[in-house]
Design a protein around this nucleic acid. Sequence first.
DNA 1: AAGTAAAACAACCGCAAGGGG
DNA 2: TCCCCTTGCGGTTGTTTTACT
Length: 233
Amino acid sequence: MGRSPCCEKAHTNKGAWTREEDEHLIAYIQAHGEGCWRTLPKAAGLLRCGKSCRLRWINYLRPDLKRGNFTAEEDELIIELHRIFGNKWSLIAGRLPGRTDNEIKNYWNTHIRRKLLNRGIDPSTHRLAKEATSADSMRSNSLGAVSEQEKITRAVKCEKQEIQFERQCQELNLDLKICPPYQQQSESLEKRSTTVLCFYCSLGLTNNKECCCKRNDRNDFLGMKHDILDCRS
DNA sequence: AAGTAAAACAACCGCAAGGGG
DNA sequence: TCCCCTTGCGGTTGTTTTACT
């Protein structure tokens, strides 16, 4: 006795959704809201698995989705967020209104990866490919015919590179606590909530010289307002 | 115009987390 | 506390579209 399958595979459709199925799903969710995905297909008269319905709704049918090409600013934002979060597509999607994790993931794999590679940047580490290669080889090479003194020298060099990288990360404000980072006590919430962030401040690059918003509050890390991390804003 | 390769997009699958009984 | 169920996530695969020869 294992757990029951998520759906009766013999009686469910697979593959591309038809217009009719889309209409059924939209109509049902508009009437009843998003609820139990497991029971939804039957209730909506769909021969689909609940997971499939959920995916279809979230990725393509939701009314708040933004279709169309990614802008250059969205590109850069995705790159910065990926540097912070890694392959946490849902977290990244949470900072890009109207975009889904699946959409971003596909876009990353088909466009941005290549774009970074063309820039000589390793997409997985966000470091210069040469730099990453030499750092890695320095680590792996330690078994070769290298003197103890040389090993120490290389280790120190590696350490320095890592410290430098960490400093760069710190500039991004990686404090991922639920509460926002340090805030000036004198600021009022009203004032903060109406401030529009520039691209750099929205990423937590609070001291970036490219900052153009010149606002007083530079602590609304990734759009966190009023002490709440709104991942699906 | 036809065939092929590459790119882009859509959907599925398996797993893990969290909640409730 | 444990077990089961549901949901959500990330990786992967399959299909369609576009570009090129």
